[in-house]
């Protein structure tokens, strides 16, 4: 029982990342009808927002302190990170919390990246076939990841999580198990709660704001909304930016779990497409549900008992699920009937 609960929990953080990326993919597909192979690259860019933020606030200024000398008799060089120069003692706290704080940088940056991407390239591809959309966004993904590689180098850059969130939470005690029976790394818990929060925010935005209502109307019937005199294109552009922000935030918060590297976008892209397909192309709740479902499935498949029963299952479970779903129920778990079902 404990083991099953533990695997359930283990699947949640990865599932959260899948869900966030798949949510963005689905938003883009549902609004603009574009199959965006560069969406994984946005996740990767988000992660590197966190890297840049930490780099910025830890830029050091060197001052020479003549009152103190080193062991060699020269004047001591005092290195102060930028954050401490500006904020004094709060600087250390700032650096400690740099990953969550990077969100503040990531939101405007990713919004801008998304809008530029949509206006600059993707809008020319609405009328072209899906194959060409895939190709151009695939090329764009290569370009983005190579730019990141050129700037940050090919090696992963690990990011520390805030020291307060470094331990493990005794989840078992909360639900009445013996203390210590079921612990769970605190940051993974935070990631799960964070992704749940972002998902709730996106759904709330679409459900309860006028803007969201117009967007939903546009998803259902773009032409009619346009005929009502609403500039639906501009709203869809903003939705693309929003999808980029969601993917970026997923990337920012994922950095302590996976040191950012330039090819993580591609690694997650295929998985999140699988998530979208399993959930149902164009269905937002489907993307979320399938994200968590596949995350949990994956963590169950990597249990030793199951691996000994079906060797290698942990390597292919996600793809296998996708193949089965596509062949048996191509519209996915929550998809609308007839949605790309041919």
């Amino acid at each position: 029982m404990d083991a099953i609960l533990a695997q359930l929990l283990n699947g949640l953080d990865k599932g959260g990342a899948y869900a966030l990326i798949a949510l963005g993919l689905t938003l883009v597909f549902g609004t603009l009808g574009v199959v965006n192979f560069a969406h994984g690259a946005l996740f990767m860019l988000g992660a590197f927002c966190a890297v840049s933020f930490r780099y910025l606030i830890t830029l050091e200024t060197v001052t020479v302190d003549p009152t103190q000398t080193t062991a060699w008799g020269t004047a001591l060089e005092v290195r102060t990170p930028l954050a401490q120069t500006w904020f004094g003692d709060w600087g250390a706290v700032l650096i400690d919390w740099s990953v969550p704080l990077s969100i503040l940088l990531a939101i405007p940056v990713m919004l801008l990246v998304g809008i530029v991407m949509e206006r600059g390239l993707i809008k020319h591809f609405y009328k072209r076939p899906h194959a060409e959309q895939i190709l151009v966004t695939f090329g764009l993904a290569i370009v983005l990841q190579e730019i990141v590689k050129a700037i940050f180098g090919p090696n992963p850059i690990s990011q520390a999580m805030p020291s307060a969130l470094r331990g493990a939470a005794d989840v078992g005690a909360l639900i009445g198990l013996a203390p210590g029976a079921l612990t769970y790394p605190l940051w993974r818990l935070v990631y799960f709660l964070f992704s749940a929060g972002v998902i709730a925010a996106v759904f709330g935005f679409l459900r309860f704001t006028t803007f969201g209502m117009v967007v939903r109307a546009g998803m259902a019937d773009r032409e009619t909304v346009g005929l009502l005199g609403i500039n639906i294109d501009r709203r869809f552009t903003i939705m693309f930016g929003l999808a980029a922000v969601v993917a970026g935030l997923a990337g920012v918060m994922y950095t302590p779990l996976l040191p950012p590297n330039y090819h993580q976008g591609m690694d997650f892209l295929v998985l999140s497409f699988v998530v979208v397909v399993v959930g149902g192309m164009g269905s937002l709740p489907g993307a979320v549900a399938a994200g968590f479902l596949l995350g949990i499935l994956q963590s169950f498949a990597s249990m030793n008992q199951i691996k000994s029963l079906l060797p290698g299952i942990d390597q292919i479970i996600i793809y296998l699920t996708a193949v089965v779903i596509l062949l048996v129920r191509p519209r996915g778990l929550f998809g609308r009937r007839g949605m790309m079902e041919n």
Binding site: V270, G312, Q315, Y319, L326, L327, M340
Partner: peptide, 26 residues
């Protein structure tokens, strides 16, 4: 059995499975 994007994803999934299996169980 599927076309368009679904076909691309299916072939992708099969290739990824082959790759992962070649690295591990096979």
């Amino acid at each position: 059995r599927r076309s368009g994007i679904y076909f691309s994803i299916l072939t992708r999934a099969f290739a990824q499975m082959s790759y992962n299996l070649a690295y591990s169980v096979l």
